[in-house]
Design a protein around this nucleic acid. Sequence first.
DNA 1: GTCAATGTTTTTGTATACAAGAATTGCGTG
DNA 2: CACGCAATTCTTGTATACAAAAACATTGAC
Lengths: 218, 218
Amino acid sequence: MEIRRADHIADQLEEFIFTGAFGDGDRLDEIRLAERFGVSRTPVREALQKLVVSGLAEQIPRRGVFVRQPGPVELVEMFEVMAEIEAICGSLAARRISDTALEALKKANANCQAAVDCGDSDAYYRENEKFHHLIYKHSGNGFLEQEALRLHRRLKPFRRLQLRLRGRLAQSMAEHEAIVQALQAGDQAGAADALRGHVAVQGEKFHHLMASIKTAAE
Amino acid sequence: MEIRRADHIADQLEEFIFTGAFGDGDRLDEIRLAERFGVSRTPVREALQKLVVSGLAEQIPRRGVFVRQPGPVELVEMFEVMAEIEAICGSLAARRISDTALEALKKANANCQAAVDCGDSDAYYRENEKFHHLIYKHSGNGFLEQEALRLHRRLKPFRRLQLRLRGRLAQSMAEHEAIVQALQAGDQAGAADALRGHVAVQGEKFHHLMASIKTAAE
DNA sequence: GTCAATGTTTTTGTATACAAGAATTGCGTG
DNA sequence: CACGCAATTCTTGTATACAAAAACATTGAC
């Protein structure tokens, strides 16, 4: 159980925004939220401040705070940055990763494959996440790791969409293999390229997905 | 004049932390701050929440919030990430920058040189900042630009230290020249390398500075 | 019927009040 | 004199109260 209710509320609201329960432009009504969470406005307001600083919501003085979902353009931009950050992580990790960490990486990858075979998508996401988190961690740069985790988390709901495309899973697994190979070989440029491509293609697939939805709507 | 006093307070506190007026581990006493700013605890608390989310302070439930200055290790890590982010900006900008933007860049650079000649360090910092901000902007990726600005701002107080080293200013100017050349040539890798080196050397100089201070203290 | 102006209602932003946990102080004991 | 324990004081976290600004509705004029 959390001590600060404000923090708990902030986490909940963040989750609602990530899952899309709150859409772009929705006003986050202090009173309504206070009633919903069974608290006063004070902790709700503190939670809203946190969302604003995180960039998940926008505050207009004397008007209220509104959720701010990234649009298609911003999402493509975010995927581009994510790709580059993962590339950096990979480049650094190629130099710094230990053998035991490499084993852990291979294991996560194997578990990923097993999940694909079983059709257990939850397990897949979990192991896939572990795979990437391991690479962040073994970049050997704690600050970089935190930044990577932050962006990874922010993009999470959008990555899931893209993974449903036909054949993407198998392709993704192959890319993971290549990444492990490069890391094992200590090939900085190779690891960077493999990871950049692996993530960038997600952004492109997502872009594709958005375009097709848009087209379908016309 | 700002409407929300809480935001004003947050800005002030941030400034105090950046300038070092508040040191690592200092407790940010709500009541004291409230008195100091002539307000009640409520806006102070909202400001503190913002600091915590920004990573400038740490909150321990029921204990208070404490300023959290980056240590030498984290600073080196941050410089490493900054170098890579600037490299990405440069790589993208090499493809996307316009001729007019290139002119602006050259102008900022010339102003930089003029400031060096006059010994006007404030002007130097201002123009140097403009130079880098232009590159972020012309990466063509708004999200990347924001991230770069955020980190640049956070490292600002530490960059200033390092620039006082003998000969660093002239070297820095030469690096700026090389960066402009690469951008003008559309040389992505060249721009990335030039920028990475330009920023990384700052981190190294800083590291050097820290080490010498440490040695002097022994 | 439309628009403007004014009065009412909401809502935000801040101040204050209160509850509960943490720190501190003072006393008693070994 | 050191240490442990209890009562007190402080501080945080939350609730409520109040002031001011914005949204809204009603009414009246054209």
